[in-house]
Write a protein that binds this DNA or RNA. Sequence first.
DNA 1: TTGGCCATTTGATTTATGTCACAAAATCAT
DNA 2: ATGATTTTGTGACATAAATCAAATGGCCAA
Lengths: 191, 191
Amino acid sequence: MLVDSADIMDAFFERYRPKLTETAIGLLTPNVKVLHYPKKHELIKTNQTSGYAYLLVKGAARSYYLHNGTEINSWFAFENEMVGSLRNYNNLPSRETIELLEDSTLLSFNVNGIKPLMAENIEISNFINQVIGEYCLYLEDKLFYTHLRSARERYTALLAQEPNVFKRVPLTYIASFLGISRETLSRLRAK
Amino acid sequence: MLVDSADIMDAFFERYRPKLTETAIGLLTPNVKVLHYPKKHELIKTNQTSGYAYLLVKGAARSYYLHNGTEINSWFAFENEMVGSLRNYNNLPSRETIELLEDSTLLSFNVNGIKPLMAENIEISNFINQVIGEYCLYLEDKLFYTHLRSARERYTALLAQEPNVFKRVPLTYIASFLGISRETLSRLRAK
DNA sequence: TTGGCCATTTGATTTATGTCACAAAATCAT
DNA sequence: ATGATTTTGTGACATAAATCAAATGGCCAA
C-alpha cells in the first residue's frame, strides 16, 4: 500500500521537531522530495559531483569504490540513516558509488538549494552540522576499532555493533568492508 | 626573543579575516589565550573531558591511546594545525592523550565559552563547522588510503603526503600510526 | 667526555591472512 | 519447477608482516 508523500516528509520533520521550527521546515520543504527506487539503483556515482543527499526511509544502501579492479565497500546504511557523499557536499567529485541494496524509499535533499539557507536560518545550519558532526564521530570510531585490530577482532566488533549488516548484506560485500578476503570471513564465521 | 601575545592572536585572526569580522573577533578574544608549554606536556588526557581546543602556533604534537599496554599513535600535528578531541567537543571523554613532541606555542580556545556564541554569531558557527568539516574529510581520506593497503603502500603514501612527519617524529611513533611494527618500518625504509 | 638509555637496524622464526582451486548451496530467470 | 548463475564454504599452499632476539647507533645527563 502506498504511503502519501506528504506523510513521509511530515514524519521526518517530526523527528527533528525540537530542533526545526515551522520557519525552517517551510524553507526546507521545496528542496525535499520523496523518491522510490529499485534495488541496484545508483544514487551517486564515482567521479560525479551530485547535488543531492538522501535519507533512507525504507531500504538499504552501500557505498563502494574500485581498487585494483575489485569493489571495496566503505559503508552500509539502513532505515533512518542519511546517505550521501561528503566530498560532493564540499564540491569535490565522489570517490564512491552509492547503490541501493534493496528497493527503497528515500527523501532527497537538494544540497544546492539548502546550502544558501544555512546563512539565513541557524536551525538549518545546526541541523546540517549535526549530521556532519555525527558522521565525523562515526569515522573516528571506525578508525579506532579497525586500526591494528586482527580480522577476528574487526569481525566480532561489527557483529556486536551492527548485527543487521549480517542479515541484510551479502558476505562478499561485508568482507571488503572489514578489510579481509571472502574466504577469511567464511572461516571466521565457521568459528 | 619573546613575541608579544597580542601579536600572535592578531596573526591568527588575520588568517581568518575574510571570514571573521571585528564583531566575531571581539566575541572570541576573551576565550582565547596564548600559551607556551615544554615538550612532553599533555594538553588532553585519556578519559578526561577537557574544555579546550588548541591551535599549534609553533611546535608539534601527537595523539595516542593505549592498546594492550602499548601506545598507538593516531595523528601528528604541526604549525597552524588545530589540535583537540572531537569527542571532548561532543561532551564525551577523550579516548586519546594529546602530548607535545616539541616545546610549543599554542592558542587555547575555551570551548565552553565559545559554543554558546555559535547561536548568536553565524561567523563563529561557520568557522567551527569548517574546522570539523575539514577534519571529517581528513578522516575519510585516511580511511581511504589505509584500508586494504599493504604496509609498503601506507608507508610510501605517508612519505609522499606528509614528509615532515619523518623529519620531526620518532620512527617508533610513526610505526604504530601506520599500523605496522617498528621492525617492519625499519625494513621498509631500508628499501 | 663518558656511560647509560633509548631508538633503530638486522636476522631467524612464526603466524595470520591472502590466493588459487574447486565444491556445495543458494538465488534467480525462464 | 529447472537449470544457470551467483554466493558461500573448504582445502592446500604462499607470503607479508609480527614476534623474538640481539647488535648497533644516537643522544642526553652528569
